[in-house]
Each structure stands twice: as structure tokens, then as C-alpha cells.
Design a protein around this nucleic acid. Structure first.
Lengths: 220, 220
DNA sequence: GTCAAGGTAGACCGGTCGTTGTACTTCTGT
DNA sequence: ACAGAAGTACAACGACCGGTCTACCTTGAC
């Protein structure tokens, strides 16, 4: 937050960007291999940063975890959630696109992180990074818990707004139900390491949406 | 599995049951605090067992994890899942009882495992132990992954059977959808540390069930 | 009483964790 | 050219990890 020395002087190339590499490595490793399972050795190795440099940018590993989560829902939304922002779809289709099983990001050409990506290799499904962080920390890190709650609330709110745009009589309720469905599809796909639940969730979502749009309103 | 020395000689008191205490401690700690977060020191301390004794019963911590998961879905089903077996309810109500938010076990008098339960103390929501194990191990322990898949498949099958008993035209599809809903309610409740999503899931389940029972059949 | 079986406590092992320290090497702006 | 920031390599710290070991106690059959 306070050591952004390159921000005010546009002429500089921004140093050598150790911090950015660290955050990129955290993005990959914390998500793919787990937060606890990722040691500092491996993290600094992947980030191509010495441990000393790491601790000049972050006071602790936990601080990096918090920044990792913070970036996830403020800077770059996961590709799946981005479906809700697609202007080329009707609101109802935006909601359903959440559960599409085709890869949502068709090779963004403006991403310079290319060479770092294919080294991962594993294509194992890993679910929601916020939920994973909550499970891994088991409530022992308040900042993580807060970040998770904030993200889930924002996502549910976004669903509710889209539900409202679709004309749902009780958009908040439909948004919450779709949030549960999405969470379940993600979690179950992770547990089974199989994306099949997404299709079931999509069918269920369609039924819920159509029911909500057809009938006037129901009591919870 | 193979060292049950007390089984053939009924005259003996069966030792002091170290193995059982170990498994009970694993039940509590692995679930409430996480598998990785639970060290052997703490585990043997809670089980009131010396480390030496532990390693006479289990070859490794991982072996205990596997046995812990194996017991969970063969010996004692979690209280919530037990709702599906209640004979006093109609099939449809059994499905909905899964999502009830009142404590499901009204002090079963025939359960000798009573004193172990309330000692947990922490009331933090922790979700599905199988899913948590899958997240914590991140696919690095094949036996865990197999146990998780087996459990989820059995649970989905049970849901489908109940859906069939309720008269659903495509019970397998409805079972899978309800499985996603349940997983989502559990996961979201964990992330938020708030049981509210269960109510949303219940409403969604009711809608899905009624839709399935009313309309003839839908394509996935 | 003896003795093996099964239990206990807890020091100890090598390894890894997150973290810090020492000493050295780039790069960059003036 | 030079100051100094930013980076590097790498040894080491204390703490804890899963796991092993020694030494002693308790029980029950003979």
C-alpha cells in the first residue's frame, strides 16, 4: 500500500517488478496447490524472487494471502463470474452462462503471463479460491474470513441485480438460490474432480429462473 | 483391520480402547480444526494416547485420515444426511428435511456416543468433511480422493432413490440437482459461517421438486 | 511371582515451516 | 561516476512437523 514508488514517476519502468511476480506466483500456487501446501521456498522459487526480497514487499505470508484474496475480487474477476457482465446476452442467459462448461476465456492476447502458465501442467479442478481459503484456514485468520464473506456477498448481490434485470419478482431470493447452486456446482466439481455437476446446476438454475419468472412470488 | 486382538477372546476386557479414542479424536479435530492443522502432538493429546501407541495402531497419519473418512460414510452418517432415512416422513419431506435448520438429532437416547459430542465447544460451521479433506489434500492423496468420490456418489444415489420414491419422472437428474444444492448450501454456510444458505437451498429444493413432479420431463 | 502383552511419558530424529541475517550484485537517475 | 535503491544467494534461526525410540508401568494368565 505505501511502498508504491513507481506510481508517481511514469518515466521509470517500475523497477523489476518483484512484487508483481510474487502475486502472480501466489495466484497460481495458492489456488492450484493450496495455501498451506505452498511453502515459502516454492513460492519464491516460482516467483523468481529471493526470500529477502519477498519480505521486503510483504511482512508475512499471511499478508500475501490477504493481498491474494483482495486482488481476486477487486482486480480480476474469475472468468466464470465474468459471464454476468456480458452485454451481448439477455439477463436470463447471463445467469445461465455462469454454468456453461466451455472454457470462458478464449486466450486473451494482451496477457504477458504466457510463459509462466503452461508450466503448471495439472488441470485438476480446484473450485472457488475464497471457499478454499476459508476451509484451509478454518476461521483462524480473521482477515481471510472477512475477505471471503465480502466476496460471497458481492457475488450474490451481482446475481440478484441480474435476476432483477431478468424480471424476477423477488430478485434477492432468486439471487441467493443461484448463489447456492453455483457454490454447489463448484464444490462438487472439486470433490469429484469432474465438471459434470455444472450441467446439473445449469438445468436446476433454468428451472428455478423459469419458475420465478412464471409464478408471481413464493414465501421462503 | 487386522490387529483386532480382542475380538476372539470375549473374556478379556478388550484392552483400554486406545484405537477407538484415536478415531474419536480424529473425528473431532480433523473436522473442526482441519486435517493439516491438526498435528500428531495435539491429536494424541486429545485422544489421551501416547504417540507410541498411536503408531502401533496406525502406520501413519495419512492412514488415520483414510480410516477417518472410511468410518464417516460406513459407520455413522452425519445427522443431516440421516434425514433421508426417516420413515415417518413422506419422500418429498425427507428430501426437504435435509435442508432443515433445526438441530436434526433430538437427543437420541440409544446413542452411547453422547459424551463425546458436546465437548467440541466450537460452533463454527465446517461443512462437509469429505469436501474439506479433498480441498486440504488438493488431490495429492489418492485414497482420500477415492473416499470422497465414493461418498458423494453414494449420497447422490440415495437422493435419487428418494426422488424416485417421491414419484419424480427423472429421479437421477433430480437427485443430482439436489446434491448440488445440498453441497452448495453446506459450502456457502461454511464460507459465510452462517447457516442462512440452508433456507435458500430448501426453497430452491422445494421449487425443483415441485417442478419435477408437475411437469412430465425435461431435457438436461 | 513371573512374564508377555499392551499401555504410558516424553526425549529425540531428520526435515520443513515461516522468517531473518549477512554479504554481494545489479540496475537506475542524476 | 556514483549513490542508493532493488535485487540476489544462501546460511541460519526457532518452532513445529510426522515419526521413532528408550524406559517404565499395568494388567491378567499361568
Amino acid at each position: 500500500m505505501s511502498d508504491d514508488r513507481g506510481e508517481a514517476t511514469p518515466g521509470r519502468r517500475g523497477g523489476r517488478g518483484a512484487r508483481e511476480r510474487i502475486l502472480r506466483a501466489a495466484d497460481r500456487l495458492f489456488y492450484a496447490e493450496g495455501i498451506n501446501a505452498t511453502g515459502m521456498e516454492r513460492l519464491t522459487d516460482v516467483a523468481q524472487v529471493s526470500k529477502r526480497t519477498f519480505y521486503q514487499h510483504f511482512p508475512s505470508k499471511n499478508a500475501l494471502v490477504e493481498e491474494y484474496l483482495h486482488r481476486l475480487d477487486t482486480i480480476a474477476a474469475p472468468p466464470r463470474e465474468r459471464a454476468l457482465a456480458r452485454a451481448d446476452l439477455l439477463p436470463r442467459d447471463r445467469l445461465l452462462a455462469l454454468f456453461a462448461d466451455d472454457p470462458p476465456a478464449p486466450t486473451d492476447p494482451a496477457d504477458p503471463a504466457g510463459p509462466a502458465d503452461p508450466a503448471v501442467g495439472g488441470r485438476r479442478l480446484r473450485g472457488c479460491p475464497f471457499h478454499n481459503a476459508a476451509v484451509e484456514t478454518a476461521g483462524t485468520v480473521p482477515a481471510v474470513e472477512r475477505a471471503v464473506i465480502r466476496h460471497k456477498a458481492a457475488f450474490t448481490r451481482l446475481l440478484a441485480e441480474t435476476a432483477q434485470a431478468a424480471g424476477a419478482p423477488d430478485p434477492a431470493a432468486l439471487g441467493r438460490q443461484l448463489a447456492v447452486l453455483f457454490e454447489g456446482a463448484t464444490a462438487l466439481a472439486t470433490s469429484l474432480n469432474d465438471p459434470a455437476p455444472l450441467a446439473d446446476a445449469r438445468a436446476a438454475a433454468a428451472a428455478l429462473i423459469d419458475t420465478a419468472l412464471t409464478r408471481p412470488r413464493r414465501a421462503g
